[in-house]
Amino acid sequence: MSLYTVIGAGGFIGARLVAALRERGESVYAPARGDPELFNRDLGRVFYCAGLTGDFMVRPFDTVEAHVGLLSHVLRDARFGRLIYLSSTRLYDSLGDQGGREDDVLAFDVAAPRNVYDLSKALGENLCLARSGGRASVARLSNVFDASDDAGGFLSDLLKRARREKTITLDSSPQSGRDYIHADDVIAGLLAMDAHDAEGIVNIARGVAISNAEIAEVFTAHGWTLELTGAAAPPHGPTCDVSRLAALGVSARDVRDVLGQVLRGFEV
């Protein structure tokens, strides 16, 4: 049995990590926000899941504190063996179609308000990679989805609507797409990074962009009507290289297969 600490254990991914680790018999410390014991005990192996996603624009200072402030304190003052910092493949967005590899040199407009998320995550990554004494690595998560109530994002929200509605209209472009990955596959990727003491940055993604039109086809095949009324638009963001994840023995499932399984469960 090993000792683990999950910082941000109350969040979407953090809570699932705690459950997965405890299910296999590990000792897990899940500190509440502001817990002073965080700096008074051995943390063992740390998953740093604290962060803001959907509300970062209205809470910019909390975003920086979660992504950088608390992290810097942990790296400098806490006792731990290894740390995995959860970041985001959103950092590739400014690179367009050319982005998606972990060794890409990132580019940001420092004056763009939305980039408080990207810049703070990038700084968190830098602290982990350059200031941890080789004890920290970075997991860049793609667009995570799940059908549970606490899941957020386009695809998660769509599945929650599908529980209640058989006909759904969205003001979204059929051509737009994202590199989606189910939450269970994210947990598998994070645990593999931990098991192999993965170094540097690892994309936790499927590596394939699925368009809204393809999603609609899955819904149609299972008895739903999904109407997309948005104007034509290019795919959103680059497709991630997942060779490093594959080298750890993890391959995320095809999003269409996962969606079909979820929708079949709704039909029962």
Rank of each mutant, 00 (worst) to 15 (best):
T239E: 12
L123H: 12
D241H: 10
R79G: 01
E227K: 12
G200S: 06
V18P: 10
A205P: 05
L119E: 06
S148R: 13
L3Y: 00
G153T: 07
R264T: 12
R206E: 07
S2K: 06
F266L: 15
T63R: 11
V46Q: 01
R59C: 02
A183W: 08
V138Q: 12
I13K: 04
C128D: 08
A195M: 02
L70M: 10
R253V: 07
R164G: 07
F219D: 04
A231R: 14
I168S: 13
L52R: 15
A183T: 10
G34T: 02
R33P: 01
R41Q: 13
R161Y: 09
G96T: 04
V110Q: 13
A231N: 15
N203C: 03
N126M: 11
K166Y: 03
D97F: 07
T169E: 15
G34S: 05
T169F: 00
V116D: 14
R24N: 00
A130L: 14
S87E: 04
V218L: 07
V105C: 00
G237F: 09
R256C: 08
R140V: 02
L248M: 07
A232D: 11
L83H: 03
T63H: 13
R24P: 00
D118I: 01
S132D: 07
A213W: 00
D149R: 14
F266N: 01
R131K: 12
A9G: 07
A66E: 01
R256S: 04
A205Y: 13
G10R: 14
A111C: 02
G207V: 08
N143F: 10
S27Q: 05
D241K: 05
